[in-house]
Computed example of a mutant assay.
Amino acid sequence: MDAFNTRIPAGVWLLSAALLAVALVLPFVLPPFQLRLAQQILLFGGMAIGWGLLGGFTTYWSFGHTAFFGLGAFAAGLLGQQLDPGLSVAMKLLIGMVFAVGLALIAAVAISIPVLKLRGIYFAIAMLAFAEILGEITKAFDSFHGTSGFPLPALLMPGLTKVQLFYFLFLALFIVNVAVFVWLRRSRIGMGLTCVGQDEDTAAMLGIPTERYKLIAFVLSAVLTSIGGVLYGYSLGFISTGSVFRIDISLNLILYSMLGGIGTVAGPVVGAALMIILTQVVLGDLLDLHMALTGAVLIAMVTLAPKGIMGLVQKFWSRRSAVEAKT
């Protein structure tokens, strides 16, 4: 328990403060294209951290987190169309976000009853099926406008461009994801989830409330993902099934986590930054190679660095410290 309750070193706080200061300045110095890349890194890197609330501690890897992403976007967007036209866009966004969070919480609790009883590949497939079902529902019923899509009003703030505004919103959500992850990792729940990942049956025998802990992590992850869907939908200004119920969103959350290091804070962000820059800058004109690159990177990481880039960094520093200790 002591390992979970130790204080965060002062150096970590200083580094975090420095990085936050840099992040706050970036919108005013980066050109629009680079700022959009930073937006995506914050949004999807942050959601990958949120995905790790369950998948990072346990062997429960969700291949269907796009279900909550799309649910949040559709819930907020459709509700916004029913609200008083006189309400400001910011108020519609806030009300829609509260509604989306409530709906995601209910959906997560409901789906957790059957899926959290499954393990491994069966859990992954069940979540994938859940996401596909929700996506098909939005296309099957005309009231959801999933096939044709529907517009969302533009959210504006004096003194900021739309790109700058959503950068700050994604940054805020990123900070929330990090804070929740750090809190969970350092709590009794985090220790229990870690035990689940090592041996769930033994953890249950030792009296750890595994089902309750898994439910808490699952619901928190779902709620944070739904908020990401709300903000993403408003940033696009248009929502359709194809824009938010995308399987590649779920797969990318896993890929970013694996590439950077599952179960870490910095890992998913590093993974997101590398893959987004590779696909949209280095291979920006070669869209057909994106999936091939993703597959190649995944195979390489599983084979050469199963603990991700952060694992390699930790291994390097451990070896260096050992060498310095000997000398």
Rank of each mutant, 00 (worst) to 15 (best):
F28H: 12
V29C: 07
L30V: 10
L30C: 06
L30T: 12
L30A: 08
L30W: 05
P31S: 10
P31C: 01
P32C: 03
P32Y: 09
P32E: 15
F33Y: 12
F33W: 07
Q34V: 02
L35D: 06
L35Y: 07
R36M: 14
L37R: 00
A38W: 03
Q39V: 11
Q39K: 12
Q39Y: 15
Q39L: 12
Q40S: 12
Q40M: 09
Q40L: 14
I41C: 09
I41N: 03
I41E: 02
I41G: 02
I41S: 04
L42N: 11
L42W: 10
L43Q: 11
L43P: 12
F44N: 02
G45D: 00
G45L: 02
G46D: 02
G46A: 08
G46R: 00
G46K: 02
M47G: 07
A48M: 10
I49V: 15
I49M: 13
G50A: 15
G50W: 04
W51V: 05
G52W: 01
L53K: 06
L53E: 08
L53A: 13
L53P: 08
L54K: 11
L54H: 06
G55S: 14
G56F: 02
G56D: 06
F57D: 03
F57Y: 14
F57C: 10
T58N: 04
T58W: 03
T59F: 02
T59R: 14
T59G: 15
Y60W: 14
Y60N: 10
S62G: 13
S62R: 11
F63M: 14
H65Q: 15
T66D: 04
T66E: 06
T66W: 03
A67E: 01
A67I: 02
F69Y: 11
F69V: 06
F69P: 01
L71S: 07
L71E: 09
A73W: 02
A73Y: 09
A75S: 14
A75N: 00
A75L: 05
A76D: 00
G77V: 05
G77Y: 00
L78Y: 02
L78K: 05
L78D: 07
L79K: 02
L79R: 01
L79G: 03
L79P: 00
G80E: 05
Q81V: 05
Q81M: 09
Q81P: 08
Q82H: 13
Q82C: 04
Q82E: 12
Q82P: 00
L83K: 06
D84T: 08
P85C: 10
P85A: 12
G86K: 04
G86R: 08
G86T: 13
